[in-house]
Design a protein around this nucleic acid. Structure first.
Lengths: 221, 221
DNA sequence: GCGTGTGAAGCTTTTCACAGCA
DNA sequence: TGCTGTGAAAAGCTTCACACGC
């Protein structure tokens, strides 16, 4: 492919021309979810104003967010629900069947394995891991639980792209080191601790205490 | 108390003089957590640079964040670990023993009830609720599980300040309406749906799908 | 007429860089 | 000397408001 073909690709409204704010990417996820509801109600088109009501964002935000990826709405009409939903899936990469390994089959790990939109919508938990002999060998949500020691091997054999970490904080870095050494490209960390990963590995953290404490602050003011 | 006493209160470095960015409040939560670790290592003082390494934020962010609430560090020395930790607890309001009701005792609800820093650190889950007869009456993490129908009554009798919602999306609005009508002041919502609450009620949402999809986007780019 | 797409303005948040105090 | 606290600059993000195309 030559340089002109590459330039054409960039012009076809599949790739953004300007940098996309991280805040926008996080909102895309919510648009995708509510479009599912709109779709199952049989609506063919939806306006930025309606999406604003359904998501809690503003209409201007909705239009700006979607416009990063091309002109996708029709003036006077709105956005085609089904096409927009597919487009968002493609942009978010959740149409690729990412292969996920989940480490730590406690309550949080089980909750995530059963979460609507995790094991189905574009993600497949292909293996789960734990260090508790009472859990190893059992099946959770249709996925076999392996020994934590098998993580590196399984990452390679099962071609795991992403690891979700739901182990206690003290065990998290070791898990991540093994996963990274075995070639994992992304880590989603739920353990309340700061993890170190090489620059080529994507890391996101979810701290379950942050939002409660934010609410506590709001009440206390 | 006269107007001068009130003015003095505002000058005593307990209350911020400038508006505090929400981003700062969310980071305070992380400072509080890592200060616990620093404290148990016996460190008396800690610099903004060290806090930056431990949290993944920048040293300038740390100093700016803490300075919203007063001059709390010593130049050339850093921040007094123990005093800063107590101060953050006071700012975040997590020294007040907020009384929490948790609705939806599935895996996610159980995970939160067992979460370090939830049931202890300043929050007390005083009652849990579910609609499943197989769970009602049992005890989870030392808390009795009541019928979801008892929510409004329990909010009043047990003086519940905050409700954590870990029910399926379709059941969430009803739970919130009951809790709000009974006088709850804050809602922490884990259900993937947009909730409506009156302006005087604080609402925070945690969407567990957002960060996985953000990682998916990062991998797909 | 309706509702998108987007310059421009406004606001928020981060980063820089250094004066000033222990 | 070391490290905080903070003006000022830069970067990032949201909102406004309206031209334009369906």
């Amino acid at each position: 492919m030559d340089v002109f073909a590459l330039a054409a690709m960039r012009m076809d409204h599949t790739n953004p021309t300007r940098p996309v704010p991280p805040t926008t990417v996080r909102r895309l996820s919510t648009y995708y979810r509510v479009l599912g509801a709109v779709h199952s109600e049989g609506q063919a088109n939806v306006s930025s104003e309606t999406l604003a009501v359904l998501t809690g964002f503003t209409a201007a935000q909705v239009r700006r967010d979607l416009a990063y990826f091309g002109s996708f709405g029709k003036r006077g009409v709105g956005y085609a629900v089904s096409a927009l939903r597919q487009r968002l899936a493609s942009i978010l990469g959740i149409d690729r069947g990412w292969r996920i390994g989940l480490v730590g089959v406690g309550n949080l790990g089980r909750a995530l394995m059963a979460y609507p939109g995790f094991n189905n919508q574009g993600f497949e938990v292909v293996a789960a891991f734990d260090s508790d002999a009472a859990v190893i060998g059992s099946t959770v949500n249709g996925t076999r639980v392996l020994s934590a020691g098998d993580l590196a091997h399984a990452v390679r054999v099962d071609r795991i792209d992403m690891v979700i970490v739901t182990v206690p904080a003290r065990a998290a870095q070791k898990v991540v080191d093994q996963a990274v050494a075995a070639g994992v490209r992304a880590i989603l960390n739920f353990a309340p601790t700061q993890l170190r990963v090489p620059a080529h590995v994507q890391l996101s953290n979810v701290d379950l205490a942050v939002e409660v404490e934010y609410l506590s602050y709001s009440l206390a003011v």
